[in-house]
Write a protein that binds this DNA or RNA. Structure first.
Lengths: 207, 207
DNA sequence: TTAAAATGCGAGCTATTACTCGCATTGTCC
DNA sequence: GGACAATGCGAGTAATAGCTCGCATTTTAA
């Protein structure tokens, strides 16, 4: 079976001690990505920052990429939670109110950990993990599309697939750009104006 | 002058021979970025592909980053040309026609060299040259805002700065996403539908 | 023609990287 | 307590990166 259990990577951590090691490594990776950037995030540096030896790192993560992916998955899980909760909460509301809440939720989601979000959104293409983000995206399209279907009577006649693409892409881009590159737009007044305008953009489009 | 010794060319190429060398290096960089990816684009590889020695490469480009930036600048210049031409052409048209042309132009711009555009849009954040793209962006905002000002009478009462942000961000995201990640949307019929919907999104928002 | 300037060359240096391996320490179970 | 697994360690390795430097070749200009 396991001829060299001491060197075969990606063990399952079964004891408490090793679970702490894994957590420390993922956390250190996230911190370094945020504070020092992708290029400084070498495996040796991550191990050092985590207070773990390089050997232990490779017991649980077979490569540097595996670490970054662990961070991506953790962050994506948090975003998904915000997104699903918002859509569920909004299911029975009329379009204008629903869109308003969704825009606010999108801003909130981007604010979960903006600096990490920024680094990851910049580095994900590089890691070739765009596919997994795409899965998340498709799920969100599907959820939003389902909402639109249930509120068909409030909408003009329109291809729901296309409409979902338009709305989700636009809201995502507006909130993403504002949070990451136009922080000055997010003062109390600014954020309110942004929500107003994004809501107007989408609702006028839909009906 | 050159406050960025690490990215500004080390030497001016004055003879024809050396200008050809510089061109070959930039072209080789672009080709490798597209065909082999950022990680394979080592200076040695670029020099080899360009048929130029590594020593000559470093006579004109002080770092690998400088080469990538040269590619970015070349590509950005082409995009700017498309963007400026479209806005000039559209200056006297009413909003709906203007927006329609601009959306079509945005798709055309993204299609100039989609694979290069994709690689660059993924790698620019990494190179820390987002600032220069931001300059391009701001110019485009300003041009579009100027258009809006000249057509104020066709618009509802709205903060033009904010409106320009909304429209430009939305159009950019829709065309960018469609061209790079939803190529199936760009069949003849699909492209037409996309232009229709994007036009509707923006025009309904503006008035 | 010829000296100087511009251009071109590539072996090889230095630094850094991802990653391995043999051994030490800690935990589990009887 | 003793045997065995799980976990932890870090010096060391091989690969590769960016980049320099001394010298060869070509062009310019007189």
């Amino acid at each position: 079976m396991a001829r060299r259990p001491h060197t075969s990577p990606r063990k399952q951590a079964s004891q408490e001690r090793s679970r702490a090691t894994v957590d420390a490594l993922v956390e250190a990776t996230a911190r370094i990505l945020v504070k020092e950037g992708f290029d400084k995030a070498s495996t040796n540096r991550i191990a050092e920052k985590a207070g773990v030896s390089i050997g232990s790192l490779y017991q649980y993560f077979p490569s540097k990429e595996a670490l970054v992916i662990a961070v991506i998955e953790r962050h994506t899980r948090e975003l998904m939670q915000v997104a699903r909760a918002a859509l569920a909460e909004v299911a029975t509301l009329p379009v204008e109110q629903a869109v308003r809440r969704l825009v606010a939720a999108a801003i909130a989601a981007h604010r979960v950990d903006p600096r990490l979000h920024r680094v990851l959104s910049e580095q994900i293409p590089r890691t070739g993990r765009l596919g997994e983000i795409e899965i998340f995206n498709r799920e969100f399209y599907a959820l939003f599309r389902a909402y639109l279907e249930n509120h068909r009577n409030e909408l003009r006649s329109v291809d729901l697939e296309l409409a979902a693409f338009m709305c989700v892409t636009a809201i995502e881009a507006l909130t993403h750009t504002a949070v990451l590159y136009r922080p000055e737009m997010l003062s109390d007044d600014g954020a309110e104006a942004l929500v107003d305008e994004a809501t107007r953009l989408v609702t006028r489009y839909l009906r």
